[in-house]
Design a protein around this nucleic acid. Structure first.
Lengths: 276, 276
DNA sequence: TATAATAATGACCAATAAGTCATTTGTCAA
DNA sequence: TTGACAAATGACTTATTGGTCATTATTATA
């Protein structure tokens, strides 16, 4: 399973540099020092690879955002929100590059649905954030405000992704906090309404079931090296099958895995499932 | 020369629907009802075609923006600015689609330089607009404000381009006027500074010379059908070679060609050259 | 060490692309 | 009608791609 990770890593570099279409499987395998056949042992197709890559990143950033919105006190929330996003873009700038470059090039139906799902999760997080922060005052403008916040995310992320300029993340987050607050407090003429927002998006997909979570956990355990995180995952898996642990322990275990890049998503799913 | 336009039209439809890479020259020629060889009589390569298309659109929207900023009185300026942009996106949504879809896929070095040039023209227009509207008050935040305005342009244009929703352009323009005004009046923590803005961009290219303008005009006259616009162009060409017409007449002739899709750019160049 | 099972290889295939060019078709003046 | 010139054709070439699979190498097991 480590081969899969190697391929993803090396392919990501190439995709970020040249784009998906312009990078051949040949190039990827050469860059990995493996054969073409070996590639197809790890991935059924080139498309499965890009799907996995994008999925990977979206899972990380989505679950990060969700975690922050749920676990930050009001006065820091907006700042931490923006900071986390740009921190993530900065840290995984190759991912972000691929995402921005290829976002419009429709891949599989499956990936599109997934993307819509992540978009929706992010939107819900933003919605719950601004509702908490501004309450009823923004009732009329909230969908427009969400759209603006997402716009800021996108617009300013380009700076990270396409230019190699050293940037002050704190300043950026502060600046966007101010902008967002301004818009939230003074906007009277929203453009994006709830109706428009719904016209544009598909309905939110179904809940993720216990069995699906279990499946993902089992697979992930299989891929991981021995570690605290793996240990925690195994315990959480058992608890999912048959709840025995106290809430405090569960929370602690979740905290253990929260920052492991491959467990963020599981952590998000479990938080939702256990309603923590 | 009419063949060239046919190809551009039909190719645009396909590129908007499927993307550039996913559209073959074969498909384009079939869609035009011409042979493959005929295609290569009009364009040296597939890339020359996309370059021409993007160039076309950028010339139109850039010159429109410049015209509006120079010829609208202050109290309507911001509104007209946004209105014109979205009107253009709406009217040429296929162009806009191609542009948004393919913007990151670096084509020829030549096109990239051109794009940087147009970007710069637009940026200068926005800069001169906000300086006129807000004067010295925004000295500290003007580059950040430009970035936000460009961000709004991009963010909200996606609504037009990727979803077939009927949109109220007036409302959108009003909404963005409010947002822009808010940011202009209350921002205290800008993120994009002049230094940063310069780090990111290349320096503005050289002025366009009389000879270059002449060349473009001659070529365009050649391509055009008999019309008032063509007549006007011919007169302007003569005036460019040897100034004989009064400023009023020149201005009138420019007005004649201003709204012809293929003359917008020439109109822009001549306005600059004659300093009107 | 012998055997089975698994992992890895890379020559090969079919499909498709951009771009070329010998040939045909059309046009118009003499 | 003819012949010279330009416009248009589409079969063809060349190159590259994603993906396959018979074969070989490696590892684990008994």
């Amino acid at each position: 399973m480590v081969k899969k990770q190697l391929i993803m890593e090396k392919a990501l570099e190439l995709f970020a540099k040249q784009g998906f279409e312009a990078t051949s499987v040949q190039q990827i395998t050469e860059h990995c020092g493996i054969s073409k056949g070996a590639f197809y042992l790890s991935f059924k197709s080139k498309e499965e690879l890009i799907t996995a890559l994008i999925d990977d990143f979206m899972m990380q950033i989505t679950s990060d955002i969700d975690y922050i919105v749920r676990n930050t006190k009001d006065e820091d929330l907006l700042y931490e929100f923006y900071y986390a996003i740009y921190h993530s873009f900065h840290k995984h700038s190759d991912f972000a590059k691929v995402l921005l470059k290829e976002q419009s090039h429709a891949f599989s139906k499956e990936l599109i649905l997934k993307m819509q799902y992540y978009e929706k999760v992010i939107e819900n997080a933003i919605l719950s954030m601004i509702e908490r922060l501004y309450g009823d005052r923004i009732k009329e403008i909230k969908y427009d405000l969400i759209y603006c916040i997402k716009g800021f995310m996108n617009t300013y992320s380009q700076l990270f992704v396409f230019y190699n300029v050293p940037l002050d993340l704190k300043l950026l987050a502060e600046s966007l906090v101010e902008k967002t607050t301004l818009l939230a407090q003074h906007t009277t003429a929203p453009f994006v309404t709830q109706e428009l927002s719904q016209l544009v998006k598909q309905p939110m997909n179904e809940e993720v079931t216990k069995e699906q979570i279990l499946e993902i956990i089992v697979q992930k355990i299989d891929e991981m090296e021995e570690s605290i995180e793996k240990e925690s995952l195994i315990l959480l898996k058992q608890h999912l099958l048959e709840p025995t642990l106290s809430p405090a322990i569960v929370k602690g275990l979740l905290e253990n895995i929260r920052n492991h890049p491959h467990c963020k998503w599981i952590s998000y799913l479990l938080r939702r499932y256990f309603e923590i």
